[in-house]
């Protein structure tokens, strides 16, 4: 092999290595390999307190991710938070309308996410429907406050 071909081979190997590295970063390190990119439909839910829930937090049923939180806003009319959830299209008309939405925490200090408990209704959730029954996030200070209040009551 002459010198020219050796250089060509090395440059080819270099290019391939760089592209493999970019591909690795995209698929293995970032969320591109696992993220759901298909169509979704929006479902709203009103919570008294969303705690530390963030946009992009997962929405799960029985622990399996079915969608993501796409928007959070405050409704000044009834003083509650409106959480908009983008549910994957394959679950359109599959989730009972009277499902129960609650904000849960992954682990003791983990991220907060929305858990849906399916109800028993024949009607199902569709684009723009609203979940009526919700449970707010557990705020640590309130729990501790209630605990201390309960203890004080016991003492008297």
């Amino acid at each position: 092999m002459n010198k020219k071909t050796v250089i060509e081979i090395w440059v080819g190997v270099f290019m391939a290595l760089g592209l493999v590295a970019l591909f690795f970063l995209a698929m293995q390190v970032s969320n591109l390999g696992t993220a759901y990119t298909g169509e979704t439909f929006d479902v709203n839910a009103r919570f008294d307190n969303i705690g530390g829930l963030k946009v992009k937090a997962p929405v799960t049923i029985a622990g399996v991710e079915v969608g993501r939180v796409t928007g959070i806003r405050y409704d000044a009319e009834d003083f509650r938070a409106v959480v908009v959830m983008g549910i994957q299209e394959q679950y359109l008309e599959r989730i009972p309308e009277d499902s129960f939405a609650k904000i849960l925490t992954a682990g003791l200090l983990g991220e907060q996410y929305v858990g849906l408990d399916p109800g028993g209704s024949e009607d199902t959730l569709a684009e723009g429907s609203e979940i009526a029954v919700t449970q707010s996030a557990l705020v640590l200070e309130e729990v501790v406050g209630q605990f201390i209040f309960g203890k004080a009551k016991e003492g008297t």
């Binding site: 270099f14 290019m15 290595l17 760089g18 592209l19 493999v20 590295a21 970019l22 690795f24 970063l25 293995q28 390190v29």
Partner: peptide, 11 residues
């Protein structure tokens, strides 16, 4: 390309 290689090997 070198930076991508650096990040991949770092991970």
């Amino acid at each position: 390309l070198l930076a991508a290689l650096f990040s991949m090997l770092g991970v």
